[in-house]
Design a protein around this nucleic acid. Structure first.
Lengths: 161, 161
DNA sequence: TAAATATGTCAGTTCTATTGACATATTTCA
DNA sequence: TGAAATATGTCAATAGAACTGACATATTTA
């Protein structure tokens, strides 16, 4: 008997202080789903290389900011040195990233994407951009600029950082 | 000698097929940073309860969709049953979520937030909403609607799902 | 020359997720 | 009615990505 599944309701709640405004559940959920599907694109591609999200984040920023130092990368990703080391080692061993000593400060190990690394970074960026393009096609003109401004305002560094 | 740190340049790249359009690096990075800082808010709060991101995601959706079944939750989170089980168990043991057999289908275990669970979910949502409010204050009128539409268009389910 | 800095590494741990296999209760369908 | 499908739970093993703490090396700065 295909009975209409009547959803049970939320339990009654104790009264709340009416001080706090209603949370913006629409934005909270939309950001969650957008990010989930956005990184899903990259995940699928990275499987072929036995790389994970962590590898992608490192490769992405090294490719976009050639000559990045390890310290700068750590600050960008907000992870620890030890977390980075495994991932970075694998990318270097696989010849996707290379290190060169700093010119001014030879303690530094500046990071550069190799040709292979650059190609992989670009491939992933293309897939993700295709997702954006599909989205923007459904939205009115100016949506790209508005979306970028909106996202930038949400992050701690209101600017691009 | 505080020498101006002259950034090394990217290595020359082999020529590319000009077929692919330039990736939308602005949006890619903006989404990354926005999400990183957005979940950072929740992470800090959850530390006090010895909960992680996984707990939050479960609690959030159960609170927002009272009477959600386990299968629906798995589909929403796009994780496996086994991944969910540990996290869900801890939330049930800690009395943040409770289960009740389905009315129509007694195989189901429908999930509900307890008062404590509801309070925690709301507390986190408030912190995240404060971030959105701060961002929207810097943006022109209509930014909330535009931002929500933009994010919704990016996810696979263009609608709220 | 001593202290600070940039990086690397070793060891141990935690959290989150995975796959595969199997058990139980309940519902649906032929 | 009985077999198959469904919803859920659980056990075991594993992987990936992060963490803390401690310590080593090379280099720069004071």
């Amino acid at each position: 008997m295909e009975q209409a599944l009547q959803r049970q309701t939320a339990p009654p709640r104790p009264p709340v202080e009416p001080s706090a405004p209603e949370p913006m559940f629409d934005l909270i959920e939309a950001l969650f789903f957008a990010y989930r599907d956005f990184v899903g694109d990259a995940d699928r591609l990275l499987l072929r290389y036995n790389f994970g999200r962590a590898h992608h984040r490192v490769l992405y920023f090294v490719d976009r900011r050639p000559g990045l130092s390890v310290a700068e990368l750590l600050d960008l990703l907000k992870i620890t040195k030890q977390s980075l080391s495994r991932v970075l080692k694998e990318l270097i061993d696989g010849d996707y990233i290379e290190q060169r000593p700093g010119l001014a400060d030879r303690r530094q190990r500046l990071l550069f994407a190799t040709d292979a690394g650059h190609a992989l970074a670009l491939e992933i960026a293309h897939v993700q951009s295709r997702r954006f393009a599909t989205a923007l096609a459904k939205l009115p003109a100016g949506a790209r600029e508005q979306g970028a401004a909106f996202l930038a305002a949400i992050s701690d560094a209101g600017e691009g950082k």
